[in-house]
Each structure stands twice: as C-alpha cells, then as structure tokens.
C-alpha cells in the first residue's frame, strides 16, 4: 500500500510539472508584455505601454482575424451543416469517401494547400490580394471540423425515428430539416462553430503564404513581431492574442465536458401526473 501511495505522489508531481511546462511560459510572456524592461526584470516596473504600442500598430490584424473568423463560420455553417446531414442520412461507401476527402486539407500540411491555391488562383490579382483568398484557405481547413462535430451529434440521436415522427404529423423534407434536424443538432453546431472560430483565428501555416502586406492576420502579425521587434512588444501582442482566444478555448472546454445523461423520472410518477 505504501508503494502505491508513493507511485501516486510521483504521478501527481509529474502531472503538476507537465502543467507548469504548459502554463509557465504563458504567464512569463504575459508578464514580459507588461514589464518596462524584460531584460532587467520585474523590478523595472509594470507598464501598459507595450500593449498600447501593439494596439496602435497592429489592431487591424486583430479586426481582420475576427472578421475572417466570422466569415469562415458563416461559410462553414452554410456548406457544412447540410453536408453533415446528408452524410448522416447516407452511411454508404460514397459518404465515407466524401468524409475522407473532406479531411484532406487537415491531413495535408497547410503549406501544400496554400501552394495549390496560389498556383491555381494567384493570377487573379483582385482575388489574390483580397482577404477572401485567406478566407478560402480557412474554410477548407475548418470545414471538416464543423461537419464532424454536427455528424457526431446526428449519429447519437435517433434521427430516423424523430424524422418519421415528424413526417407522420405531416412535415415534408425541408420542414423536418428546419424543425427537427437543425434544433436537435444545435449542440454539435455550437461546438463546431467554436472550433471553427478558434482555428481560424489561430491559423498560420496557410495564412503565411496566402497573406499580402494588406491582408495581415493576427498570427501573421505575431510572426512579424517575434522576428523583428523587441521581446516586450512580441509578448504584449501575444497577450492580446490570449485575451481573444482564451474565452473561446474555455467555452470549448465547457462544451466538451461530458454531459450527464438526463434520466427519465421513475414510472410511478405517472400517478401524480394524472
């Protein structure tokens, strides 16, 4: 038993160390972004100067990233939810193949996808230099997450029976889609939406090749700042990024938490009801 206790303590300590590995640099970078001179250390004093500097120089990247994320969300909803429903309904070979194909932009490195887009559409200057060029890449990369998230929910609920129930009451195809399918995969849509926004806001692999000097997203700006500016500014910029992405990640965690199955009330309560 003593042996077990020791093992347990070791595991606990190890887990704490892993946690420190992940969290300490985050805290350090936040502090660095608020310190007057990081080289000197905290005793040089705290300041918001770097944050304001970043805000003045780079706030456009923040807004572009947010705009892209929302546009990306709209497109993945429009393209992904109907597709997920179709895939849920037809669980054949073709459906599997489509699902597999859809995953390719995630499996294949972003650089490759970006190169493909550049060689195919780089010649259309108006498109190449617009934010829509980046948007296309983001949609390719995030679409499978929306589809999978919705598909996961659709395959747990007893969709066929629910739809039959609705049809028996007189609901046609699109009425069933609107009244039964969409409301009942709400959780999947929500989780997928958060995932899409989070991934779009953080996407760099493709965006670095797809962007132009006039279409810099937040991660592109970050890479710029890390490469060429002083550490404090890079850190302050990272701090702004954290402020943007942490609420998204925390909400995702809450959604991902396994929900308790709501059990039906025991059958004897029927007496009270009647």
């Amino acid at each position: 038993m003593k042996h077990g206790k020791l093992l347990l303590s070791l595991q606990f300590a190890f887990t704490l160390a892993v946690c420190a590995f992940l969290v300490v640099p985050v805290v350090m970078s936040i502090l660095a972004g608020l310190t007057v001179n990081y080289f000197v250390g905290l005793q040089s004093g705290l300041t918001l100067r770097w944050v304001f500097e970043v805000w003045d120089a780079y706030r456009d990247t923040l807004f572009l990233s947010l705009g892209l994320a929302l546009a990306c969300l709209a497109l993945t909803l429009l393209l992904g939810v109907p597709l997920a429903y179709l895939l849920a309904r037809s669980r054949g070979r073709l459906a599997r193949a489509i699902e597999e194909l859809l995953m390719l932009p995630v499996a294949v490195p972003g650089l490759a996808t970006a190169l493909g887009l550049i060689v195919a559409y780089g010649g259309f200057a108006g498109f190449r230099t617009s934010a829509a060029f980046i948007l296309v890449g983001h949609v390719l990369f995030t679409l499978p997450f929306m589809v999978r998230s919705v598909l996961a929910v659709l395959s747990v609920i007893d969709l066929p029976t629910l739809e039959e129930g609705a049809a028996s009451l007189g609901a046609g195809f699109w009425q069933r889609f609107r009244d039964i399918v969409l409301p009942n995969c709400r959780n999947g849509i929500l989780a997928g939406a958060l995932m899409v926004v989070t991934l779009s806001v953080g996407e760099f692999n493709m965006t670095w090749l797809l962007h132009t000097p006039f279409t810099k997203t937040l991660p592109v700006g970050l890479a710029d700042a890390y490469a060429s500016l002083r550490l404090e500014i890079g850190s302050a910029y990272t701090l702004i990024f954290f402020l943007l992405i942490t609420p998204l990640l925390l909400t995702l965690q809450v959604l991902a938490r396994p929900r308790r199955q709501s059990f039906a009330a025991p059958d004897n309560t029927i007496e009270n009801a009647s």
Binding site: V18, V26, M195, G202, P219, I245, T246, L249
Partner: peptide, 11 residues
C-alpha cells in the same frame, strides 16, 4: 492542461 489546445504554431 488543455488550455493551449489550438494555440497556433507561432505562439
């Protein structure tokens, strides 16, 4: 432990 999920590579 799961907070850095989906931090971009640059960060």
């Amino acid at each position: 432990l799961t907070l850095p999920l989906a931090f971009p590579g640059v960060v």
